[in-house]
Amino acid sequence: MNRLGSLRGSYGLDSDRSDIEIDMMPLIDMIFILLIFFLVTASFVKESGIEVNRPEAASAEMKEATGMIIGITPEGYVFIDRNQVELRRVRGLVEIFLTENSDGGVIIDADGECPTSKLIAVLDQCRLAGAENIAVSASKPKG
């Protein structure tokens, strides 16, 4: 037997290589830990779920949607999270949102043709719920 053959025999290298396995459990555990981390740290945005024609404002600024979005249609219907809600439910839903996201804001996405009284009523309900960071969405004029 040559020298390489004696080394293989002493280290058990001449056995069949088909019994070598890679333990995947630590990798799977790490993936689950990362998944849980991203789910816990992610901030979820509640959208209104409707398309509106925003009024134009020269002072409009682009901001990230970091909170609850309340949509108001031209007919005055209020939508939160793709569901039509009555005005009396807005305050409770905003309170729930603020308990889950203490630094979250509320964006009122009102159509340019919606009744002003409905916009003011929704704004009032948000303030009564304790929201301090409230914005009304608008778009910059083209041109």
Results as ranks from 00 to 15, higher is better:
S6F: 15
S6C: 11
L7F: 09
S10T: 13
D14V: 10
S18W: 12
I20N: 15
I20P: 01
E21W: 13
I22L: 13
D23W: 02
M30V: 13
I33M: 09
L34G: 14
L34V: 10
I36M: 14
F37N: 13
F38N: 05
V40S: 11
A42M: 08
A42C: 06
S43C: 13
V45S: 02
V45K: 00
K46G: 15
S48M: 01
I50F: 01
E51R: 13
E51W: 11
N53P: 07
R54E: 12
P55T: 11
P55D: 10
A58Q: 07
A58F: 06
E64M: 12
A65G: 08
A65R: 10
G67A: 00
I70H: 04
I70Q: 00
T73A: 01
Y77H: 14
D81Y: 00
N83S: 08
R88T: 12
V90N: 04
R91V: 00
R91T: 12
G92I: 05
L93M: 12
V94K: 07
L98G: 00
L98Y: 00
G104N: 04
G105L: 03
G105F: 05
D109Q: 09
D109V: 01
G112S: 03
G112N: 09
G112F: 11
S117T: 15
L119G: 05
Q125R: 09
A131D: 03
E132Q: 12
I134N: 03
V136Q: 06
S137T: 07
S139E: 12
P141C: 08
